[in-house]
Design a protein around this nucleic acid. Structure first.
Length: 805
DNA sequence: GTGTACGTTTTTTTT
DNA sequence: AAACGTACAC
């Protein structure tokens, strides 16, 4: 390879990037801030290795999502060096290796992969079997098992560590769970990592082989590796030490599923000779966006300092939009997207992100109402559908007859007269004899034990299975459609559709299409491979960013992506940060990182939205704005209040003492606030001190929680800036007057019904009636988000909104 | 055995 | 709000 060909790979790189790309042997850690060209570095590095003589098949690249893997493959292919290179997710690598070395880990090569839903069922079975943990939530048990597996702890080891009765119960369930999986020749997601880690640990020969095979290892998103993944990476690079890990501690957002941030923080300890390269120049975001993100993440304590900088100009200021509820938020977001589109912005330039999938509904509705095309990256939506899982269960059973879970799922789908009683008897038999259920029901003598009617129906099912089993060798798509036809599933779904029900038939037909596509894309398609692939596929991976549609996605799903315009919705205390973090059941810093990830997706414009009332599970909850808003606000942020839409006027009030000032608006922005009635909260009168203005607790969390607000997180607070605004910071040295010292006040003389006011806690409101003292002036005020309240004006932190000229 | 009505629980994020 | 589980009528 010529010098020139190598230089070509480096031409457009900065010095740090170049260093990472050209580093040859030994451990390398690339700490890459958002938008710092990390993927570019990885792909160039892969290409550089190959062009300097390393055979492509000696390079193994590991990513987290299939999508990242696909993207990397594509880019490496574009560089012309892809042939033979392995680019996999950890989980897909696990499948591949487990299939190859199945004999060494006690699996048949045709093992089934259980998703979380499947493993939850197994947990329930294990609970029923052991009669342990019956008072615990199956999902919690599943999570505990998953955690144990991530840490490579066997049931026996867990039992030794267990102290509490619940822990002991969990270990019993765990042990039974493992037995059930083994009997079914099935593995769960965690096994795909754990078993590989164990395989590499216990088999020096395998380890050595793979070290020779994969001389160069690239591991992306290293900050999100679990202990098991870390061990895999270590074992795979044990002999040559050629591991290049890339990641960003500030983007570690998967601690809840076992990601251990120490892996990246202690890389130098694990790999003593490691070279560290930092990519700090951001090529993605405009100055304002980057500044806000940097300001936010600086609030995290457990972090390594990193300077993000950009050569781009300031760009548009970051905006904060406030709404009274989710409907208003969704409507405005949709309107904004329509405006942008009308102004020539392609839909695909814009993304809407949120903390939890549940909030996407309202947004979808609003987009549909306006006829805006959108795509949604809702994890597992497709493959989690009942009809899809049913179809897949038939296919799984063909491939792995020992998969009782698959059998139990479909033995009576569509209904064929095999009811709960028969199934239960069959299960008891299976348990007694330790044989797969399918095997039992295919045996006429066993069937006879279950009574004549049941025996007849089971015989029919056995007959059906006989037909299906022959499909194993036919083309995958044909197998899928044959299953649909022979099982009666298709017919049942058609009837349901024609009866005016949901069109679930269309979904299973889509599965046939997916199978066809798979056949075309795959060198050696097989039903087994198809199923194992599907098990690792979420439709997260199917997201096509280039399509002419707005993209809706969770913050987690947004990692690694970028968009010219990002609308980050739901910045409320309790949603982002999520309440579990506020209750101490999660990590507030991880929530902050998540928000950071969201912000740094934006190239040009970042719009943050927050609502006063958020519907959760059918109930509306008043919520304070996210503390992150305050932490981010650098004084150049534009706040817009959409909570009260008055004719001809768009009011802007403060949030919790932060007084966004209209004057901050750059001229062109100010012009958009039409007509030009610009409002500002009147400064406090000197004598309007009230109990509510006493020095507040450290204000990490907004102090305006409603009565139903979740427990406040006792946060550390010094991050918050003092209010900057026309309204001077309130004096806190004076003792607040006691209620009985208050006297009627002439200040309120000119207030009358209709007067616009603002309240520290309730925001914008309008006077309904007013009654002067003595002893106090009382008024009823209707707030946009909190309803009507009667207040004592001398005491309440309420001020008139004055119109500026 | 099947279908339905009602009460209960749920979701934070994903391979 | 929606999905799930249980109880009960057919």
């Amino acid at each position: 390879m010529t010098r020139h060909a190598l230089d070509e790979l480096l031409a457009d790189l900065n010095p740090a990037q170049r260093e990472a790309v050209t580093h040859r042997d030994g451990p390398l850690l690339v700490i890459a801030g958002p938008g710092s060209g990390k993927t570019r570095v990885i792909t160039r590095r892969a290409a550089y290795l190959v062009r300097s003589g390393v055979p492509a098949r000696n390079v193994l690249a590991i990513t987290f999502t299939n999508k990242a893997a696909d993207e990397m493959k594509r880019r490496i292919t574009d560089l012309g060096v892809r042939a033979g290179m392995w680019v996999y997710t950890f989980h897909a690598l696990g499948v591949r290796l487990l299939r190859e070395y199945s004999a060494l880990v006690g699996l048949e090569p045709n093992f089934t992969i259980y998703d979380e839903d499947d493993s939850l069922r197994v947990v329930k079975e294990a609970v029923a079997l052991t009669r342990a943990g019956e008072d615990l939530r199956p999902d919690d048990i599943r999570a505990a098992i998953s955690r144990a597996k991530n840490e490579l702890r066997t049931p026996d080891e867990c039992r030794e560590l267990a102290e509490w009765p619940e822990q002991i119960a969990i270990t019993l369930v765990y042990a039974a769970y493992e037995q059930i999986l083994a009997a079914r020749n099935a593995v769960d997601f965690d096994d795909l990592l754990l078993r590989v880690a164990v395989l590499l640990r216990d088999h020096a020969d395998v380890r050595e082989r793979l070290n020779i095979r994969f001389r160069y290892l690239l591991v992306d998103e290293y900050q999100d590796t679990s202990h098991a993944q870390y061990l895999i990476a270590r074992h795979l690079s044990e002999q040559h030490g050629n591991i290049c890990a890339t990641g960003d501690p500030d983007q570690n957002i998967y601690a809840w599923r076992g990601a251990d941030i120490r892996n990246i923080l202690e890389f130098e300890r694990d790999f003593p000779s490691a070279r560290i390269v930092r990519l700090e120049q951001n090529y993605r975001s405009a100055g304002h966006v980057l500044a806000v993100a940097a300001r936010l993440i600086a609030c995290n304590r457990k972090r390594k300092r990193k300077e993000l900088w950009t050569e781009r100009g300031d760009g548009a200021p970051v905006e904060v939009w406030q709404f009274s509820d989710g409907d208003a938020e969704a409507a405005r977001v949709a309107a904004f997207i329509a405006e942008q589109h009308a102004a020539g912005r392609p839909y695909s330039d814009m993304a809407i992100t949120y903390r939890v999938n549940a909030v996407s509904r309202g947004l979808e509705q609003a987009l549909r109402d306006r006829g805006i095309p959108y795509r949604i990256a809702r994890g597992l939506e497709f493959y989690n559908r009942r009809e899809i899982k049913d179809t897949l269960a038939y296919l799984k059973l063909i491939v792995n007859p020992a998969d009782d879970a698959a059998l139990l799922r479909i033995i009576n789908v569509p209904p064929r007269g095999i009811g709960a009683t028969t199934v239960e008897r069959l299960r008891v038999l299976g348990h007694e004899r330790g044989r797969p259920l399918l095997e039992l029901l295919r045996d006429a003598d066993t069937r006879a034990l279950l009574g004549p009617a049941a025996a007849r129906r089971l015989a029919a099912f056995a007959e059906l299975y006989g037909q299906l089993a022959a499909l194993d060798t036919t083309a995958v798509s044909e197998a899928v459609s044959a299953v649909l036809r022979h099982t009666g599933l298709e017919e049942a779904l058609r009837l349901e559709r024609d009866a005016g029900g949901e069109d679930r038939l269309a979904n299973v037909q889509e599965l046939v299409t997916a199978a066809l596509k798979y056949e075309q894309d795959t060198l050696e398609p097989s039903l087994l491979d198809f199923l194992q692939r599907v098990a690792l596929t979420s439709d997260q991976d199917a997201v096509d960013e280039r399509a002419g549609a707005v993209l809706l996605l969770t913050l987690h799903a947004a990692k690694g992506l970028e968009f010219p315009i990002v609308l980050l919705t739901g910045l409320e205390q309790g949603l982002l940060p999520h309440e579990r973090a506020l209750r101490g059941q999660g990590d507030l810093e991880e929530e902050r990182r998540l928000c950071f990830v969201g912000c740094t997706r934006a190239r040009d414009r970042l719009i943050l939205t927050t609502v006063a009332d958020r519907m959760v599970r059918g109930q509306s909850f008043p919520r304070p704005p996210s503390q992150f808003l305050r932490e981010m606000d650098d004084g150049r942020t534009i706040w817009r209040d959409f909570r009260m839409q008055l004719p001809g006027l768009r009011a802007r009030a403060h949030i919790d003492g932060f007084e966004p000032v209209v004057d901050d608006l750059p001229p062109d922005e100010a012009a958009t606030l039409a007509p030009r009635h610009r409002l500002r909260a009147a400064p406090d009168d000197p004598d309007s001190e009230t109990p509510e203005t006493r020095p507040r607790r450290p204000r990490t969390v907004p102090d305006d929680a409603g009565p139903d607000a979740p427990d406040r997180h006792a946060g550390r607070g010094p991050r918050a800036r003092p209010p900057r605004s026309a309204a001077p910071p309130r004096r806190s040295s004076e003792a607040p007057p006691a209620a009985d010292e208050a006297t009627p006040d002439s200040r309120f003389a000119r207030w009358k019904p209709g007067t616009l006011v603002t309240h520290d806690r309730y925001g914008l409101g309008q006077v309904v009636w007013i009654r002067p003292g003595p002893p106090h002036t009382r008024a009823s005020i209707r707030f946009t988000s909190y309803g009507e309240k009667v207040l004592i004006l001398e005491l309440a932190p309420v001020r008139e909104l004055r119109r500026e000229t």
